[in-house]
Write a protein that binds this DNA or RNA. Structure first.
Lengths: 151, 151
DNA sequence: AACAAATAAATTGTGTGCAATATATTTGTG
DNA sequence: CACAAATATATTGCACACAATTTATTTGTT
């Protein structure tokens, strides 16, 4: 009985650490991103668009592992903020193409300071970051849902 | 210019991995917890209460790093579900004491299967889990807010 | 061409997270 | 005792996440 109960201790649970660490890191981003007028998920969407502009909602969702239920309102708010434009494609009217505005593109300059500041806050060695990234990738791979993770 | 822009690539960002991994793991828990009638944050609250029953909202919040804005409605839903009871303490009426009901205590038996199933899904070695836990703890420590992390 | 199946977004509803504020109670100080 | 400061919880408002459903469009098949 005691053996089985040990599995249920909070401190033993890897998942709680992951959950707490993710939220803790997002909280670190928050004041930095507030200066750019972005939330953390909005920042992720901008990262994707800065890398490759003019993507469909579906493509952004694949990169961020988010569905339209999350992305549609998020992108609408970013459109309201003047960072991007959403328009149905003429070739395929099911799709909505998302393009950065000049303001959206310009924000990239200021954003460079964000990951650099985070790196300082994290205070992990490059070796530790590399290890952590590797382990998280492996975990992501093993937990990926067959439905969502279609590549 | 190119150097600075490299900091803004999604795949480089540790934080995105953490964010994606946390959500991916929660999705793995979801079908298992659905059988217990719990969401993931509710499961975490139960873990804390199974370990030590009759805690204040504040104490639960310290364990889970959640504030009353999140916990109050969450605990109310769990009370509705018959898993616990919330009552103002007589000694100090600012505090609310949270106690498991018999149903809440009994649920522990079924819950033991959950972390075991997750361990199988994760498919990580004990060594890898240990490493990951250690790195996440370090990250958590370094990102902890001075305000919230009062011990 | 006709139409079922597939696809892409949008919508709806529920449950977090969290900042900011409000309320009630207790504690500390003169 | 009076009363400001501190404490614990609750409330409000906003922004995700995500399951489930709906809507509109395109594709595949006959």
């Amino acid at each position: 009985m005691q053996d089985a109960a040990d599995w249920l201790k909070l401190d033993v649970q890897l998942c709680f650490r992951l959950y707490a660490a993710s939220r803790s890191m997002t909280r670190c981003y928050q004041p930095l991103l507030a200066e750019l007028g972005l939330t953390y998920p909005q920042y992720l969407a901008m990262l994707v668009l800065w890398e490759e502009d003019s993507l469909t909602v579906k493509r952004i969702g694949e990169r961020l592992q988010l569905d339209s239920g999350t992305l549609t309102p998020l992108l609408k708010r970013m459109e309201q903020a003047g960072l991007l434009q959403r328009q149905r494609r003429i070739e395929n009217e099911r799709e909505v193409r998302v393009c950065l505005t000049d303001a959206g593109k310009a924000l990239k300059e200021k954003a460079v300071a964000v990951p650099q500041a985070l790196f300082t806050t994290l205070n992990l060695t490059l070796e530790e970051i590399s290890q952590l990234s590797h382990l998280l990738d492996k975990l992501l791979h093993n937990t990926a849902q067959t439905a969502a993770g279609s590549e």
